[in-house]
């Protein structure tokens, strides 16, 4: 870990401005990912702007019948919130499928959206990695790739976005609210939040330098049955091989997103329209452009089978 300086921001504007103006500065929220990466020198910020004192800790109803989740709301609080459990159960299920109780107590809503990949080569600073050192090459390609991406990836990087919460938010059409260093705000649909990085895998989201997440809003509940099935090699405390978030209505229509397969929660609207035709139709459309490795090609039939199980449960 490199030495760094530290401050606790008092206002969102102050926080955004501090990170925008100081070279190498980063926001610190729960720290469950950033501090680990700093210990390994995968991240080496010169300055941390701690946002924990900002007034982002509430979950509130919105005028249109949805909810607004403050950026600092912990995973534990969000997953246990009565309205989330009642109206957005897919989100509760996704969050509780991730990490451990202790980590969920610390992890924040905004921080979880920014969780970085768990690719083993990204984590080993001896190994070439375009995400850590742009232009360095990707050692995961041709290496150990069982856990890695099958679609939306590139010749520069085959990593995945590893989280669960965002996969559920994707089927709920969440919107990420931010404040920029000049004080303006913007609303970013979660579909656009994570980038398909192409040959710039170091740029994982559309956030600008110094842009601070203030909240995530969920639109009015869409009813239906909510599912989150996370398939992994052990029953807890493991990243997904494949996860499927789905909201299924009585008429078999609905929304579906896949985790553990791409640089972002993977949802393809044209594929989703095929839900009444069954899992095979949805997955073959959603993964039509897939470029898996020998080690991870199983993820595509696994995605199909997992979705088939959800559809069967929805019908029963």
């Amino acid at each position: 870990m490199r030495s760094f300086t530290y401050e606790r921001a008092r206002t969102p504007a102050e926080a955004a401005s501090a990170v925008a103006t100081m070279r190498g500065a980063k926001f610190l929220a729960g720290g469950t990912n950033l501090l680990d990466l700093m210990k390994l020198e995968i991240e080496a910020p010169s300055h941390l702007v701690d946002v924990q004192d900002l007034d982002f800790g509430e979950i509130a109803d919105t005028d249109d019948g949805g909810i607004r989740i403050g950026a600092m709301v912990s995973n534990t609080m969000l997953s246990a919130h009565p309205r989330v459990r009642r109206d957005y159960a897919v989100l509760t299920r996704a969050i509780q499928a991730g990490a451990s109780g202790q980590l969920r107590n610390k992890a924040t809503t905004a921080g979880n959206l920014l969780q970085r990949t768990r690719c083993s080569y990204f984590y080993d600073t001896n190994m070439p990695c375009n995400k850590r050192r742009p232009g360095d090459g990707c050692s995961a390609i041709g290496g150990s790739s069982r856990q890695l991406g099958v679609i939306g990836i590139s010749d520069s990087c085959i990593a995945t976005y590893p989280g669960d919460m965002a996969v559920a938010m994707r089927v709920l059409d969440a919107v990420v609210e931010t404040v920029t260093p000049d004080g303006s705000t913007r609303s970013i649909p979660i579909a656009d939040f994570h980038r398909l990085w192409g040959d710039t895998p170091q740029e994982e989201t559309v956030l600008e330098r110094g842009e601070l997440i203030t909240a995530v809003t969920l639109p009015r509940p869409r009813g239906g049955k909510h599912f989150y099935h996370k398939v992994r090699d052990r029953r807890s405390y493991a990243f997904a091989l494949v996860s499927v978030a789905a909201v299924i209505q009585d008429d078999q229509t609905g929304q579906v997103a896949f985790g553990g397969v791409a640089p972002k929660p993977w949802r393809v609207p044209e594929a989703e329209e095929l839900l009444p035709q069954g899992a095979a139709a949805v997955v073959s459309r959603a993964f039509a452009e897939a470029r898996p490795t020998d080690q991870n090609k199983f993820k595509i039939p696994l995605a199909e089978r997992t979705l088939a199980g959800i559809i069967a449960d929805a019908r029963s």
Partner: peptide, 16 residues
């Protein structure tokens, strides 16, 4: 050995 930490090298948890 690529998966050289306890996130990458999985051993059973209680739930298993």
């Amino acid at each position: 050995f690529v998966n050289h930490d306890l996130a990458g090298y999985e051993v059973p948890v209680h739930a298993d």
